[in-house]
Nucleic acid binder design. Structure first.
Ligand SMILES: Nc1nc2c(ncn2[C@H]2C[C@H](O)[C@@H](COP(=O)(O)OP(=O)(O)OP(=O)(O)O)O2)c(=O)[nH]1
Ligand SMILES: [Mg+2]
Ligand SMILES: [Mg+2]
Ligand SMILES: [Zn+2]
Length: 576
DNA sequence: GCCGTTTTCGGCCCGACTGTTTTCAGTCG
């Protein structure tokens, strides 16, 4: 099969690392890394673009040379340049680069003078005391290397799910807010951008005059700290007991906006905004926007953006993926927000594998401020969840009708999450589906089929006129299970043709349909349902997760069906 | 290697912390 975007990204990053160890032009190195980033962020598989003879140099950051190299990678599965580099330098040097404190220069030094080419070599050399004598190293850095060897990220070691990081973030915020002199605490970085997973927590703090030192002291003394990596006046890094790194930055109040902008990133976004400032005769750093020595902005992020002629850019969009041009043209979308949401279109109760009763879920939804909640139990095929057969569905519908009698201004929608069988038929008879308010169809079994078959299976399910929503379309579980091999472009077009809605499942390890495909779907005119797939009353609050993912996909109120009133929603569902 | 209503050549974001170093390079955010 053709290489995936992530595999192409890895090859380009390998070239970059090896060039850097060889002390090549740093800007050339950067160009490879930038191309790798662009490819990682692309929604479409690069292989498809190459096959379709698309001109890759249309992408900013990919020029004539890199376009040709990417094409070579897709067509041959490798890159001649990389093979040559690997003859010149052992590829295991890339492992050395993973050791904290070892970058390209020190790696080259270790290899050149001590023949250190692997982590084992490194440990041996350090323990024998050979490294301390090397120029640029000393006793401390040798000791540091020994300690750092334990912190090398193994391949396959996972980034934290956003929702897991949130638990640590909240605890830390609380601790920091209680420190005397602290004014503001903000978790920035990938966490604030709402990424699916985060590599660390980046926390910005402002405090009263001359309190910086004490505040920093208090931070590194946090009970959860296992390890202090660095400890300076304005910036420190620690490792918490669960292995999570936290970077803390302290600035004065006047720099809050500029610092928040810096620390929220992304790196690529920062570089692009700072470049804009340069072009306009300004300099942006974490302290403010400067014209010469004079600070001209920086108290708020809005000020920072305004200084370079941009409207405020929401954190979720800050990836240098078109948001800066859109802000310059004042055409950023009004992103989906919590107050837009009128209901939830996917949940389970105790009748199958949920925990709440129908009444409890209804009251939970009302407490969320909703007009409707679709109860979508599993169908019979999903036996381990106690899925319902046709007869049971009809009985259950009566029960829901009875409960709905008690409400005004709110309704439980009679739904089902119907399993898509291996051949694309649905797990319940059309005669039953026809009586439901809402049908979510999703794949639970046989997720390993070749792409063509799997895609046909799903499109066949969407052919059923009662299929309203395609549930968790890729079936991925973040950090656990890869997405199914499917042609999502085809599925999006098929959904468009049939009036099928795609689900953005808000479960923290699903976030499925992934954001970039949500963007593609919305651009194709396909609507999205942001659904929690709640299995308990508390789970209804996962809507926030879904909204963050939707925002990263540039979705607006208009793109999302569960922003509609009940009557509008029902009108918008396809009918046979 | 990329890029261009200032440029097709000459720039490419900017700064904190550490350790090794006599004034700063390397790494990292
Ligand atoms: N201007 C500038 N800012 C940077 C650079 N590297 C990092 N930053 C800023 C933007 C990042 O979002 C922020 C935090 O850095 P991190 O390494 O923690 O990255 P981030 O949180 O985006 O992703 P992560 O999930 O931690 O891998 O610091 C850089 O090279 N230049
Ligand atoms: Mg981070
Ligand atoms: Mg960080
Ligand atoms: Zn479900």
């Amino acid at each position: 099969m053709f290489l995936q975007n992530n595999e192409i990204r890895d090859l380009l990053n390998q070239v970059a690392d090896l060039l850097e160890i060889r002390d090549d032009n740093p800007f050339r190195v950067r160009a490879y890394r930038e191309a790798a980033r662009v490819i990682e962020q692309m929604t479409e598989p690069v292989a498809s673009l190459v096959k379709a003879n698309k001109d890759l140099s249309q992408y900013r950051g990919i020029g004539r040379d890199l376009a040709a190299k990417i094409r070579e990678i897709v067509e041959t599965g490798g890159l001649e340049q990389l093979r040559r580099l690997r003859q010149e330098l052992p590829v295991s040097l890339l492992d050395l680069m993973q050791v904290p404190s070892l970058g390209p220069k020190k790696t080259a030094q270790l290899y050149k003078h001590l023949g250190v080419a692997s982590l084992e070599d490194l440990e041996r050399a350090a323990r024998r005391g050979q490294i301390a004598d090397l120029s640029g190293f000393g006793e401390k850095s040798q000791q540091h290397i020994i300690e750092s060897l334990g912190r090398v990220k193994k391949s396959g070691e996972k980034r934290l799910l956003w929702s897991d990081a949130a638990v640590h973030a909240r605890a830390l915020e609380e601790y920091l807010m209680d420190i005397e002199g602290v004014r503001r605490v903000r978790v920035a970085g990938s966490f604030r951008r709402g990424e699916e997973t985060v590599g660390d927590l980046d926390v910005l703090v402002t405090c009263g005059r001359d309190r910086e030192k004490d505040v920093m002291e208090a931070f590194v003394s946090f009970e959860g700290v296992k390890n202090i990596l660095s400890h300076g006046k304005t910036k420190s890094s620690v490792i918490l007991r669960p292995g999570l790194q936290v970077d803390l930055r302290i600035v004065a109040q006047v720099s809050y906006g500029a610092a928040l902008h810096y620390f929220t990133g992304s790196r690529a976004h920062n570089i692009a905004v700072r470049k804009l400032a340069q072009d306009k005769g300004y300099k942006i750093n974490e302290y403010g926007v400067y014209q010469g020595e004079k600070r001209v902005a920086g108290k708020t992020e809005k000020e920072v953006y305004a200084s370079v002629g941009l409207t405020y850019i929401p954190p979720e969009l800050r990836e240098n993926m078109g948001e800066i041009q859109a802000a310059a043209d004042n055409r950023l979308p009004a992103l989906l927000k919590r107050s837009d949401i009128r209901g939830d279109l996917h949940c389970h109760t105790r009748r199958t594998d949920g925990h709440g009763s129908l009444e409890e879920m209804a009251h939970g939804a009302i407490a969320m401020g909703y007009q409707y909640l679709a109860v979508t139990e599993h169908s019979q095929k999903v036996a381990m969840a106690g899925g319902l057969n046709e007869k049971q569905v009809l009985q259950y519908m009566k029960k829901i009708d009875a409960i709905n009698e008690k409400f005004s201004g709110f309704r439980l929608l009679k739904g089902m999450e119907v399993d898509i069988l291996a051949d694309g038929r649905l797990d319940l008879a059309d005669s039953v589906l026809a009586q439901l308010d809402l049908v979510v169809c999703s794949v639970h079994y046989q997720q390993r089929m070749d792409e063509k078959k799997q895609t046909e299976r799903i499109i066949r399910a969407m052919d059923n006129p009662y299929c309203h929503i395609l549930g968790h379309p890729t079936a991925r579980l973040i950090n656990t299970r890869d997405p199914m091999e499917i042609d999502l472009e085809k599925i999006i077009l098929a959904a468009k043709d049939r009036g099928v809605i795609l689900e953005l499942n808000a479960q923290p390890d699903r976030l499925d349909l992934p954001s970039s495909y949500c963007k593609m779907a919305a651009e194709s005119g396909v609507r999205i349902a942001v659904s929690t797939d709640a299995h308990s009353v508390e789970n209804l609050e996962l809507m926030e997760n879904g909204i963050a993912a939707a925002r990263r996909g540039w979705l607006t109120r208009n793109d999302v069906v569960n922003t509609r009133s009940l009557s509008e929603l029902l009108r918008l569902l396809r009918r046979p």
